[in-house]
Design a protein around this nucleic acid. Structure first.
Lengths: 194, 194
DNA sequence: ACCTGAACACCGTTCAAGT
DNA sequence: ACCTGAACACCGTTCAAGT
């Protein structure tokens, strides 16, 4: 028994993301993805359980695509670089990115981003009892901005104005964290929370 | 010519919102709304141009449903009350509310909320050149939180934790605005921007 | 002016069948 | 184990027709 698999979960997700990039999220359909792969719609169901599962997979791909900045730098630079990386990913995949706001971040990819932020916040001197809450508010603000930009909520403003908005957001976020511990490097205690 | 209209735009939008509340946004379909109204799907097209237009109408209804707090109070209380009102609306309509992040706020309803915030920010002493930008970041943060809560992104936390998150968010926002002008009332110059 | 009826291309998913 | 084929209920929307 057995037969060479023609497609796999990874190719399906990549194809779906490409369709979203090129033609919008509404164009991501089981029939459409199958058509792109020159395969029957039903062939997909061997690799993804349902369309909802396919969208969950897209979220995973997006999270994995966010490049974690090097941790050997001051915590504030690390956090600002991460915010910029998240925004850049949103701009690369504006149609698919909003999905990130719609699913609780419980997958390994999501956890790893969150843990990195937790580390940086500890380095920043945020009291342990506040670390998780601060991460939630930080990520909500950055995601909110990235999604707003991606969906065109700011579209009546020019690029320069939106860039300045983001710079101001970054200033806000830095301002909200305890000052003065800027010289410490983030992430040199990786693993202590696992 | 002439015939008693059985349905109208308002009833269509109300019905669509009810369906979203009860069965989720995916259940909002032309066929489904028509079924609820005991009418043919095609009857809707006399009152809304397309499904996209129907969703735009839903955004309008949501914006109109946000009760603007009384303006005769200190600007910071006004802004915090407005944030709370936005969050409350999101909680009443969790399925439909995320639509607000997906359309530029150009309708009259959206403009009126934005103008009220602009007024309050001026009262707060925000320099004129910063008013629009500050409003964008403020509304992005509040919308981001409200949508995250509505979509269940925080669902692995209990209600008390999420309430505390929101309280912390409100503290952040207040902190970011110029201090010291708390005794002025907001909105007593309504109309000066129109 | 407002609604119905029939129709079309498309969608997500089931079930049975092929190799 | 992996894919195909036929099928079903449903969707958004067009077009022509009724009153």
């Amino acid at each position: 028994m057995g037969r060479q698999a023609q497609i796999g979960r990874a190719v399906i997700l990549d194809t779906a993301l490409k369709i979203a990039d090129d033609h919008g999220l509404d164009a991501v359909t089981m029939h459409g993805v199958a058509r792109s792969l020159e395969v029957t719609p039903m062939a997909l169901y061997r690799h993804v359980a349902s369309k909802a599962a396919l969208l969950d997979g897209l979220v995973e791909v997006l999270l994995t695509e966010i490049p974690l900045p090097p941790r050997a730098q001051p915590w504030d630079e690390f956090l600002m670089a991460l915010a910029a990386a998240i925004r850049a990913t949103a701009r690369r995949h504006p149609a698919a990115f909003p999905l990130l706001l719609f699913r609780p971040a419980v997958t390994p990819a999501a956890t790893s981003v969150r843990d990195a932020v937790h580390q940086a916040l500890r380095q920043a001197g945020v009291p342990e009892a506040q670390v998780a809450r601060t991460e939630r508010l930080l990520s909500t603000a950055v995601l909110g901005f990235a999604v707003s930009e991606a969906t065109g909520r700011f579209s009546r403003h020019d690029q320069a104005a939106i860039d300045a908005d983001f710079a101001e957001l970054q200033r806000w976020l830095r301002q909200l964290l305890p000052p003065g511990s800027t010289n410490q490097t983030a992430g040199n205690t990786v693993g202590e929370t696992s």
